[in-house]
Design a protein around this nucleic acid. Structure first.
Lengths: 190, 190
DNA sequence: ACCTGAACACCGTTCAAGT
DNA sequence: ACCTGAACACCGTTCAAGT
């Protein structure tokens, strides 16, 4: 058999930053953060690991930063129909954000590392937007945003680790516990 | 010169799990989690890396688990003088726990990984203790414990990443923001 | 412009051997 | 019982080379 090494290389769709990040996220979600290596990522993309560096010159650092941005940087929640007050929009925002964190739980440790503070700044700002549009003052909105985001991230961390029972050895219903805790926080806001 | 390889080996204090963990924590605090390697840890202890496996047979996994336990597993807060109510004890508990998390910020990502759920279970239980001793009912204490712990961990995560300014580009006073958010949460508890 | 192949300096871990 | 040394199968990354 004659080797035809160029056939695959020519016909496959070319690499792109988006495809790289999607593949990386698939590995993290399916196999865990520890199994995300440049070589395995290359395999998944049917490419040599070194090809990735052409799109992400800063290598794995840049890849991990991009994963954090992809998962943790919340969109500005263009809620369309202006709902009355901030309470309901904030509940929706928190529920959506929690869902994303849990869907990509492997990325959570990265969010807590020093990397990519821009991602969370965006998120804080979008949270403040929701509050201010609901009539909460500038100062109070800034404080409440940190409180709520802190709670959501922290609770997601507890959930992921999944202690199967509470202190009294009853199974924990995380969904209702999350909303209960959130309402508790929101009650404090105003 | 004649080599006398046994002199150092004989006179130095022997390895122990405690010394290993202390040295590991020193590396993580001083140089970051990424620089904690078995080989470097061995160097710090003036021992070959492989000697560590004699005390921690499960290797690096076990080492990281131990770090989480050391930092995140809160003591039962034997508060001595029974203070009235739960509010003040809880404030002290939260302040102390936050301080520990920030002092060993490099361990925070490990706390969010699936490892060692026993550590946080202990912490949740000690928090519930504080609440119940203050007269909060069983059910409410269980929910409040998760809420408070979630908030403290999440806020510590935000602090460590240290976005230097809030949404309005003012520098953030994390200390007062933490207590403000905590009071907000506590106001919800009761 | 985009990808490959070989090479380098590291990892964690095993296992037989030393004392 | 406790530690060492060599070895193995991996890493991330550089760099010259291919198309």
């Amino acid at each position: 058999m004659v080797r035809q090494p160029s056939i695959n290389a020519q016909h496959r769709t070319p690499l792109s930053t988006e495809r790289i990040i999607e593949a990386a996220l698939r590995i993290v979600d399916g196999q865990g953060l520890a199994r995300l290596t440049m070589r395995r990522l290359g395999d998944a993309l049917e490419v040599e690991a070194m090809a990735i560096y052409h799109h992400l010159p800063r290598g794995k650092e840049q890849l991990l930063d991009a994963l954090v941005t992809h998962v943790a940087s919340s969109p500005a929640q263009a809620d369309g129909a202006a709902s009355a007050g901030w309470r309901e929009p904030l509940r929706r925002w928190a529920a959506g954000y929690r869902e994303r964190l849990l869907a990509h739980a492997g990325v959570l440790p990265l969010l807590v590392t020093r990397r990519n503070s821009a991602a969370l700044t965006t998120t804080v700002r979008s949270l403040q937007e929701v509050l201010r549009r609901g009539g909460v003052g500038e100062e109070a909105a800034a404080a409440a945003a940190h409180t709520v985001l802190g709670y959501v991230i922290g609770h997601a961390a507890l959930e992921v680790r999944g202690t199967p029972e509470d202190g009294a050895d009853r199974p924990v219903d995380w969904d209702s516990r999350f909303t209960a805790g959130l309402d508790l926080v929101l009650a404090g806001v105003g």
